[in-house]
């Protein structure tokens, strides 16, 4: 906690961070880009920054990605 790197992490606030709400409507799209092997940061740079910093949003993202991978696409 007390070295410069850890303080840098503790106070991380990166320019361009889109915040939590911006990721909600596009989370499915973001995840599908990843599943296709594309870089979602190109299309959603602010959310890509945010997901590196916000544990809550990162957990939600990881959950959607995991569900899409594990349960996949289904026909009704």
């Amino acid at each position: 906690m007390t070295d410069r790197h850890d303080l840098d992490e503790l106070l991380r606030a990166q320019e361009g961070d889109a915040g939590c709400d911006a990721g909600v409507p596009i989370m499915d799209e973001y995840v599908e880009l990843e599943l296709r092997g594309e870089d979602p940061a190109k299309r959603f740079p602010g959310t890509a920054i945010h997901l590196r910093v916000c544990p809550g949003c990162r957990a939600d993202h990881d959950g959607v990605l995991e569900a899409a991978r594990r349960f996949g696409d289904l026909d009704p």
């Binding site: 599908e32 957990a59 959950g63 959607v64 569900a67 899409a68």
Partner: peptide
Amino acid sequence: GLSRFTTWAYKFAIFEVS
């Protein structure tokens, strides 16, 4: 239709879990 329907639907379930 910007994602598959199921991925869109999973999002709602994950947010509820959260």
